[in-house]
Write a protein that binds this DNA or RNA. Structure first.
Lengths: 217, 217
DNA sequence: GTAGTTGTTCAACCGTGATGAATTCTTCGC
DNA sequence: GCGAAGAATTCATCACGGTTGAACAACTAC
């Protein structure tokens, strides 16, 4: 891009772009996308609102930039998948809850999810991310004919935890401890990954259910 | 058409309120809350925008009215809980997917969820609804010491299905058939409701996990 | 110096939801 | 019937949202 040596005015003595980003980050996480207006944000930084557009193109651009510096899920996911497959369900739940429970991580993630629900393009971003970084890899590791179905369902269950505990905050999930959640959700996740297609503990009510699928391996 | 829309009350008794509601319902479901502007909606109905405020107080009031006539989850939930507890997981999944898959029901529900994510008051509504109508009742039916934890986790997983399949539309969940979903998610839900705290199919890797909880009844 | 580039502000635009006053129709007491 | 009360409808306007183009200021390069 910049072929010629640096011409023109140098960035102001305080790096205004970084300042805007920092304040925006704080306020977006605290007040949500709609709660932050460009004018009020500009006033906070002590700058004209047009400058934000100048640097970030638009309000959404600014939000995207904030997300960029706030959310890095990929490395956490990679760590999870590296470990022992047997213990993955418990570890996944524990890691997820731990990460989301600390506000410095949870708030950015929450605002990201909120924004994604409202904005189809952001939703597509998350959708693709989940699929490539998590579901495909997980399916590879568990193997078997219905690996993708199991992996997808697994992610769905994890997503449900995020949705009900953090976005909706519905009780009792919202105030259960990490251990309690691992205890109750862990076995279900194990069933999804490794279990048979129907738990044989009681009569599966064979009538309507197409209870037989590909062999549970 | 009518080139000079006269001021004042219209002759006859056209039920304009119902007309507004019908058009709003359609457009909200198709274009989402933010996609519908009061002016464009008013133009669609052939009416001044102020009339909407007159009838419904505010845009949110209109949206609430649309939800009112579009979403009645309570009766469906009641039916579910009436049936045999043993088959509840499968039936719940099947009912949920069936309902959400038909656009006449699914779109309203989806726009409700979307709105709830953006608006804390609506979120509180859904939160309370889920808790009173579903979790408490379900906990009563399954009984036992950790009934509430199990019920909450159950609802969380169901919510995850909604979130990932319908809101985020992440693959492969988004294009799995009803039967496939019932097959993969059903057993996990059974585990949540009735299962032990750790599935004994393989060595539960006793180290880290607080794998023992209240007896599984 | 002068020209060119970048940072910053100002004023304005257009679209949003909301509100109060003005106007016209319906209804109901007499 | 008449006339007043009230309901339904539009208009003009407000405050506020994000965005934009022109102007100006600061700085670098030649």
């Amino acid at each position: 891009m910049n072929s010629s040596p640096r011409r023109g005015r140098r960035p102001g003595s305080p790096d205004v772009r970084a300042q805007i980003l920092a304040v925006a980050r704080d306020r977006f996480h605290r007040e949500g996308y709609d709660g932050v207006t460009m004018r009020s944000l500009a006033a906070d930084v002590g700058v004209d609102a047009a400058l934000i557009s100048y640097y970030f193109g638009s309000k959404r651009g600014l939000f995207a930039a904030v997300l960029e510096i706030s959310v890095h899920p990929a490395d956490i996911l990679a760590k999870l998948l590296e470990g022992d497959l047997e213990t993955l369900p418990q570890r996944a739940v524990r890691t997820l809850v731990t990460v989301w429970d600390q506000p410095e991580m949870g708030m950015p993630l929450l605002s990201a999810v909120r924004a994604a629900v409202a904005d189809p393009e952001l939703a597509a971003l998350i959708r693709r991310g989940l699929h490539r970084e998590l579901i495909d890899q997980l399916a590879d590791r568990i193997g078997g004919a219905d690996a993708h179905h199991r992996a997808g369902t697994f992610v769905g269950q994890i997503g449900g935890l995020v949705f009900t505990r953090y976005v909706l905050a519905v009780e009792p999930l919202a105030s259960m401890t990490v251990d309690e959640i691992v205890r109750t959700l862990g076995p279900a996740l194990r069933t999804t990954l490794f279990g048979p297609v129907a738990i044989p503990a009681r009569r599966p009510h064979a009538a309507a259910g197409p209870a037989r699928g590909p062999a549970p391996r």
